[in-house]
Amino acid sequence: MRANNGESGGAVKEEVPLAIDVHNLTKRFGKNTVVNRINLVVPQGKVYGFLGPNGSGKTTTIRMICGLLTPDEGEGTCLGYDLRKESENIRKNVGYMTQRFSFWEDLTIRENLNFAGKIFGIKESRKRIQYALQKLGLERRADQLAGSLSGGWKQRLALAACTLHEPKLLLLDEPTAGVDPKARREFWDEIHQLASQRITVLVSTHYMDEAERCHAIVYIANGNILSQGTVDDVISQSGLSTWVVGGKDLVSLKEELIKNPAVMTAAVFGESLHVSGVVAEELEAAIEPYKDRKDLSWSREETSLEDAFIYYNTLIKDYKKG
């Protein structure tokens, strides 16, 4: 297995084996470059969050990593196996949970687990399936068709089925989309429990609170990785400073402020408006005229991850405009 030589910029640490180590990964569909020369390095035992707007190339990247799509360019290894030449070995050791529920709805819960058990050639699969059912709390409903489960339960079944063969790497594609908050929290407890057993997890998500439960996050937009690192890294890499303003008619205030070039982003969050800019002095100058207004209350705050993401998205839009 290749080792991390501290190329991500940090100090040279002790050698950590890499679960994912890919370079210049590129995928085109027709003329569309959907994933553009991305580098992704994930050390073993870490939970990495994969964030980005819809259509930014998360699913495509994950599919290339687990061998379901052939990259047009780029190379690398997954669990030490060559991405292009050893995809069978990768398949055996990776658990991939697809974005859309992809187990068989016309099979029962138990039949789905049995099938996965046999395909992966799991020893003592009967015991393991029984244990998985217990842990899921689905023992009594094991003979129910998978199609009859609600969204949250489907996700848990899928997770149980794709971890049955004790994979070393888990690729989870938006596993908590459309799942209620309590189920989401439990799902993430489960992910961290797996990580504590040295399982590496790459999970794509749209939720900020989930991003904050990751060891590191990767932000991708339009097929390009814009930022990666810990949550704090990603925020500080944006270089933003942020003011939060409360008051009335924030929407029209936002419209006015955004016209000022020093204001990079302005976004309403419920009762407050977040205004961010890259150069702190210019931003302050920009909001100066509004500071005295009685109906508004201003405060300087830490830039949030969401502010940073909104900023990254505007960069992409400007870039596309020319």
Partner: peptide, 11 residues
């Protein structure tokens, strides 16, 4: 039904 992706991801 999208189950092909799952089947293909299996060995």
């Amino acid at each position: 039904r999208g189950t092909m992706e799952n089947l293909l991801a299996m060995p």
